[in-house]
C-alpha cells in the first residue's frame, strides 16, 4: 500500500530536481516581464506546486 506513493513521491522529487535546475532554469532565464526577471517567481511557483502535489499524493492515500 505504501509502495505506490513512495514511487510517485520519488518521481515527483526527480521532476522537481529537473525543474529546479539547469537546463530548465536557462529557459526561465529568457522569460522577462518588462525588464523584471522572473526567476524567483518561477522558483517559488514551482516550489508551491511541488509541495501541493506531494500533499495531494500523501493525503489522498491516507483517505483510501
Amino acid at each position: 500500500m505504501l509502495d505506490r506513493p513512495v514511487a510517485r513521491l520519488a518521481a515527483l522529487a526527480l521532476v522537481a530536481l529537473v525543474l529546479f535546475n539547469f537546463p530548465t532554469l536557462a529557459v526561465v532565464e529568457r522569460i522577462v516581464a518588462g525588464d523584471v526577471p522572473l526567476l524567483p517567481f518561477y522558483l517559488f511557483g514551482v516550489w508551491a506546486v511541488v509541495i501541493g502535489a506531494a500533499a495531494w499524493l500523501i493525503e489522498r492515500q491516507g483517505e483510501e
Binding site: 513521491l9 522529487a13 522537481a16 526567476l39 524567483p40 516550489w47 511541488v50 506531494a54 500523501i58
Partner: peptide
Amino acid sequence: QGAGFLPVYLGPTLLALLFLG
C-alpha cells in the same frame, strides 16, 4: 546574490519527498 539563497531550502524539499522511501 538574489535567488542564490534558495538551493539551501530546495535541497531539503527534495529530501522530504524521499521521507517515505
